Simulated assay, not measured.
Amino acid sequence: MTIDIADRLGQLGMTLPPAPSPRGAYTGVVIHHDIAYVSGQVSRVGEQVIAGPVDHTTPPEVIRHAAHTCVLRALSALAAALPPATRVERILFLRGFINAVPDFVNHSQVMDEASSLLHEIFSEMGRHARSAIGVASLPGGGLLEIELTVSLTHEADRHQPDATPQQDAR
């Protein structure tokens, strides 16, 4: 089974934000063979950043909002880069950088919010390997930045007419 990102999000009552543009000398997504590498996406809504650092008093809803924002931005970048008739086969790896105060040790709990959303969107194909890394700062002061590694598959266009028309055999 494969997933069309926009269709699946629509089923869940979610939509993709506009595809983010790289803010430096890199590309947002590199596809090599059937693997897509999605560049880091910071917890940014439009031009506003969901800021860190996270600490023990950061409300869970702020962490959840930051994680969901990062996932949707990464999926938006991916969807914009996919060639026609290419679908997501599986999420392979999620890497998260958490802007946290030095004594914060619950990095995995922050990343659980991103992992849970990927599981919700992709079901079993959303189960992935993961790293959660605490950092002193992120671009724009963001709370979270994620990277995705995704396996892709190509599907034949089911709506393409036959190459040779059928003749009436009467």
Rank of each mutant, 00 (worst) to 15 (best):
A156E: 12
V135G: 03
R87E: 14
P60F: 14
L118S: 04
P17S: 08
R158N: 12
E120Y: 04
G96F: 07
T149E: 15
E113G: 06
A156G: 10
V45Q: 15
P60A: 13
V49E: 01
R87A: 13
S39W: 03
T153M: 02
L117S: 10
A19Y: 05
L12A: 01
S76D: 04
P20T: 06
M111P: 12
F93A: 10
H32R: 15
C70E: 05
A100D: 01
Y37G: 10
I121W: 02
L92N: 09
Q11E: 15
R87M: 08
L82G: 07
F93Q: 11
D4F: 00
L12M: 07
R130P: 00
I31N: 04
G96N: 09
I5W: 02
T15S: 15
L148C: 03
D55R: 08
H33N: 13
L78W: 09
T164L: 15
N99T: 03
G13P: 12
A156T: 13
Q167N: 08
A163P: 00
A19H: 02
Q160H: 12
S21V: 09
I3N: 00
L148Q: 02
S76Y: 03
I50P: 08
A129P: 00
R95H: 13
L72A: 06
V30G: 00
L117T: 11
A114V: 12
L75T: 01
L148R: 02
M14W: 13
M125G: 14
G10T: 10
L9A: 04
Y26M: 05
R158M: 11
A66N: 05
L75P: 01
T69I: 07
V150G: 02
T2G: 02
A66I: 04
L148K: 06
P102K: 09
T164S: 14
S123W: 00
V135M: 02
D112F: 12
S76L: 08
I3L: 10
S76W: 02
L118Y: 06
V150Q: 05
V135A: 01
S123C: 10
E113L: 04
A81V: 06
R90E: 10
S39Y: 01
G24M: 03
H65P: 01
A74L: 03
V150D: 05
R158C: 08
R64M: 09
P161V: 09
V135S: 02
L94K: 03
G141L: 09
V150W: 05
A77K: 04
P17I: 11
R23P: 00
A163H: 08
E147K: 11
I50C: 10
D157Y: 01
L118D: 05
V62N: 05
T15R: 15
V150K: 02
R127Y: 12
P60N: 09
G40N: 11
V38A: 05
L92E: 14
L92I: 08
D34Y: 14
P102W: 07
V54K: 06
I50M: 09
V42W: 00
G46M: 04
I31S: 01
E113Y: 13
D162A: 15
L138P: 07
H119K: 08
V105Y: 06
A81G: 05
A81R: 12
S21H: 07
M14I: 07
P139K: 06
